[in-house]
Each structure stands twice: as C-alpha cells, then as structure tokens.
Design a protein around this nucleic acid. Structure first.
Lengths: 330, 330
DNA sequence: TTATCCACCGCAAACATTTGCGAAAATGTT
DNA sequence: AACATTTTCGCAAATGTTTGCGGTGGATAA
C-alpha cells in the first residue's frame, strides 16, 4: 500500500504538479473547477490529510494550545479544562495539558515543553511559589500569548482571567454578618497565593468593621491542614459558631471532622464555603457556598485567547462575577 | 534579534556545516571533542532547541500520546490521566487529551485528530455506543498502538487495561452475603457498556445462588437516574435493606436521596459501592467500597504503552486487582 | 499581425532537521 | 616515501507543505 497519502502521490497519479494539487485542495482561484474536482475526488479516495508537521514547519503555527495547572484532579480545574477543550475544538484548536504538581521547577519545565511543541498560546494557573515570571515575559515577547487563570501573578502586567475573588469573599463575609455569627474560624489556602490574599483581605475588611464578630484566620496548605485546624478548634471550651472555607479542598478537609462531630450543622456550628459547586451538595446538610464556576471561567479564557491570537489586544484583567448558592448550613 | 536559534544559524556563526552542528549536538562519534564543545557552548548560549516539527517531519515520531475519554471531570479518569501524565513525562512523552462527551461521533473525530497530530500512541476509554472499531483496527494496522482502558471494547482482540471488574463485583456480592442482607437494590451503569455487563453478571452470579437474598437490578445512565430509582424504591412499603452502587457517579446520585432519608445508614439500609476511593469518604457514615484505582491503572497503562512502542508485543488484556475498603455503611 | 490580457498551472525556494555517502586531512604502518 | 587507515567533516537528498513568481497557451483588442 502507498501508506499515507501525500500531495506528491496525488500529483503523480493525476500527473500534475504538487503546487497545483495543494492549491486545488485549498480552493485557490487560480485553479480551474475541473482540476479542483479531480484533485478533491482523488484526495478523498486516498484519504489524504495534510501532514501536520510539514504544515507547522512551513507556517510556524501548531493549532495547539498549552494548558498548565497545578493538578488536573481538582474540581475547579477539571471544569475549566473541560470548557476550554470544548470551545477550543470548535475553533480547530487542540489542547496539550501539563501538570505542575505545584512544583515551580516542573512548572517551568512545562513552559519549556510548550515552547518546544511551539504551541500557539498558553493557559496557566500558577503553582504556589512560582518563579517563572521571566519565562512569562520572555514568551509573551516572543509572541506566544499567555492567559493566566484562577491563580494569577500578583505583580506585573499580564492578561488574566479569574473569579471576582474580592467580591466572592465579600459576599461570604456579608452572609456571616446577616446570620449574626459571633465567632468564626476562617480557613484560607496557601498564603503565598495571590488568590488567598485577595480573598482574605476582602473577607477581613468587611468583618473587621463589625465589632460583634471575632475572626480567627488559619492558613491551610492542603485539606489535611484544614482537618487539623478544625479538630483543634472545635474541641476548645468555647468553639466557634461558624467555619468559613475558602475552597473546595479546604471544605472537604473541614467536613472530614465536622460530619462526625457532636456539633450539629447549622444549629451548633454553621458552614460557608467558596466553591466550584459540586462538593457542597454532597454533604448533609448541603453546604451554602459562593460559587466560582470553572466552566464559565474556561469559556471566558478561551474567548480571550482567540481574540488575542488574531490580533494583539491590550492587556486586560477579566473578572467573572460570583453568585451565592443557598444550602442549609447557615 | 535572531529570534529562535536553528542549526543553520549556529553553523554560520561557527562557520561549519549544518550537519556537523547537528551531529555535534547528538554526540555523534564522528565529531571531535573540540568541535563538540564549541558547538554545545554556542548552542547553550543561543538557547538552541530543536524545532520539533522539523524533527517530527523527518523522523515521523511525535513524542506525543493521545488520550481520549468520555469526560475528564470524572474522579476515575482524572486520577488515571494524572498518573499517565506523570509517567509519560518521565519518558519524554506529552499528552494530548481529548473528550468524547460520550458521543460516538466526537469520539471518532478525536481519533482522527490523533491521527492528524500523528501521535505515537493512543489511550482510550470508550464512549457508550462507540462505533469506531473499524478506526481502531485501521490505526493499529497503521502501527499506532492503542491501549483501551476502563471502558474497553467487548468484541475483538485488543490491548486492554482495566479493573478486574468481575473480581470487584464478586467481592461486593460476597460482602453482601456476609452481612446477611435480604433485599438489595443494585444500581448499575449504562447497560451498553461492557464494564456494566461484566460487573452485573459477576454480581448476580454470586447472589443468584444465594436463595435468601433477592436482588432488584436497575440501570442508570447517569447520577440523576440513580437518584430517581432510589427515591422510588425507598418509599415502598417494603424497602430494600441494601443498596449497591456500581460507580462513584451512581453512588453520588443515590446518596443525594439517602443522606436526607429517614432511613439510617447502616441500621435501616446499608450501602456498598465500587469506587475510585475519594467520594465514599465524604459521606457520613463513610461508605464501604471496593476500590478501583485510576491512578494505579494509569501507571499500568503507560507501562504497557511504552512496551508496545519499543517492540510490538502480543496483545494482552491486563487486569488490576481490587481491594475492599471498610467504611461504616455495611 | 502584433500586442495585451487572462486563466491556468509549474518551478523552485523555503521551513529545520537527519543521515548515507564520499572526501579531505591527519595519523599510522611499512 | 608510499600506502593504508582512521578521524573528522561537508554535500546533498529527503521529509511534506506553502507560496512568490514566472511561464504557457489561447482569446481579445488594436
């Protein structure tokens, strides 16, 4: 068998030049309808499909987008990826997904991989303590658009797409005041992340004005940290009457204790989270939360990317508003 | 700026031929240590990195593996993907992840995309009602190894890697007998999937021998189906004393009802699932389950793939044994 | 009849790399 | 010194496509 079809093979069969075949397949006006027909027929018959490497080599475009996240297995990232993949496909782009494992080194290696595969653009959610910012600016300068999402750089001027973190935290804080909570344990994520800082600052800004409520802030690198903090706190003589969790991961860690604790939700202790929207519904009672939808954010991100690729647009920081979802934990 | 470095640019600077530069960088024995040194130094300085497209074009290898799943956002698939990605990276491979959305058409389009990007191998978990088997055999014949995982084809002779489905279901059935359950509602997934058939057959084979227990089988296309079936069944005058869920998705659907139901777990009704291991721990009490680890399966799959790529090995169907994880729901 | 124009098509370079083969230079052998 | 051998390197083809430019043949205009 002739193995895979190429322009050359078609041209030989039809006894034309390679260029004519190439142009015919692309509907170039220079080629007569007659030849176009012949070429297309044979091409279909031979199941011709352009060698993407040759095309990429020639055009220096890959139709592939890189996507780097600390971990795929994370509610938020999954839904984000899912959305991006779907939308990207519609525009003929495919996704190359890389995990940094929250390791700055692997993150920069992943960036290099993206460069190596000459992706047309990169989506990235930063690893904690990422130190790749020189790479970022370098790639952007080299005309590889980078869109940061969710965990975005604190400093620098970049294209970002993220949840309205302040807004979400503010909504949560207001809910806590509305429900007249007195003593809250607020669990935040990794303190080096800007997303943590933003949420914490906005959260405290509201609550600190309220003299009737006292807040204890704890940082949790992972779910286990949350489990530990909650365990410690609820065994005190004067336990909090509310627990706020800044993320799904933390919520899960906290609930590991709470679901078996003597304290009942929401009578003895109430719970509120910022979440992607799947986990809170699994508990009993269902946890109230401020939603941050990865799916919607994904759609926004890919839209921005496509804009950016067809014409360099000014740098923008896009925010996706959040909404409050009522459970029975408040 | 000279933009990206190429062999040519290096060769001009050093005033040697392109081939010498190429060979020097690959430590070809024909090249003297002296030139090698010079070349390598300049290459490092210029941050040379081979153009992957040119390499691929020449060698017809891409160092990319395709991975097709119905949906990324699925506990099992995530952990599988995560494992594959990690292991693949170690061997210099990257992953191109595609979602079929359980749509046979999109599945075959994804396969074509894999072909288009000339991936070196494909991992695939079938969409329900997949009709791509001609494509499979065609690609395998064209020397693109395909490893099926989790949801594998029923008929045909393929390389598969999956959970020991019969074993898992058998373990579950035995547990049900041990705990002297009398009336069980068994919730299975999409009946067109071989994974469903295998689990159901093995499950029933054990329980049908047992005259003291009656089993009601229901199929659920999704979690909502499970919710519905459970709702209907537990409101009967004579509800079951046990519910078996064949997957995480179904467990979640079932628990949506059970966690608020008047029936207490495990006193009034016990629950057992086959699961990837994350979800069952979220409930109270924690659900007992037979573990099917996507992570482990992923490691197995990539190992098999690498074997297969370096030398065509005979077709094999690999099974990963499962283990019973005790919760408090039985 | 000669010049002009258009529709249609092919040549060849370019993209960056790999590699078989041959050739020059250096070294070793009598 | 003449020959053989090894070391070291360059030429050129090949991978499959895209594309600027130039060329043919026929039709129309002058």
């Amino acid at each position: 068998m002739g193995q895979t079809a190429t322009l050359k093979k078609i041209s030989v069969q039809l006894n034309m030049s390679i260029s004519t075949v190439s142009r015919a397949l692309k509907n170039h006006p220079d080629i007569s309808e007659n030849t176009k027909r012949k070429v297309k027929e044979l091409a279909a018959l031979m199941e011709y499909e352009p060698n993407s490497y040759a095309v990429n080599l020639r055009t220096n475009k890959s139709k592939v987008l890189g996507l780097i996240v600390p971990a795929i297995s994370n509610m938020f990232n999954e839904s984000f990826i899912s959305a991006v993949e779907n939308e990207a496909r519609k525009s003929g782009y495919s996704l190359m997904i890389l995990q940094s494992g929250d390791d700055p080194l692997q993150e920069s290696e992943n960036l290099k991989l993206c460069k190596h595969y000459r992706v047309d653009g990169i989506f990235i959610s930063l690893a904690a303590e990422s130190y790749s910012s020189e790479l970022f600016t370098k790639y952007i300068a080299a005309d590889i658009p980078i869109i940061f999402f969710d965990r975005v750089p604190e400093a620098g001027n970049f294209d970002t797409v993220c949840m309205a973190d302040e807004e979400a935290a503010t909504m949560a804080a207001h809910a806590i005041i509305t429900y007249k909570k007195k003593k809250v344990l607020a669990l935040f994520g990794n303190p080096v992340l800007s997303i943590t800082k933003k949420r914490k600052d906005a959260f405290l800004k509201i609550l600190e004005k309220e003299k009737t409520v006292v807040v204890e802030v704890q940082y949790c690198i992972n779910g286990a940290d949350a489990t530990q903090h909650v365990t410690k706190t609820i065994s005190k003589t004067n336990p909090p009457d509310h627990i706020f969790c800044m993320s799904d991961e933390i919520l899960i860690g906290a609930m590991k204790v709470l679901k078996n604790a003597p304290l009942k939700i929401p009578e003895d202790i109430s719970v509120l989270a910022i979440s992607n929207g799947f986990i809170p519904g699994l508990f009993n009672p269902e946890i109230s939360y401020v939603e941050t939808s990865g799916f919607e954010l994904g759609k926004l991100a890919i839209k921005r990317m496509l804009e950016n690729m067809e014409a360099k647009t000014p740098i923008k920081a896009i925010m996706l508003p959040s909404r409050f979802v009522e459970g029975n934990s408040l």
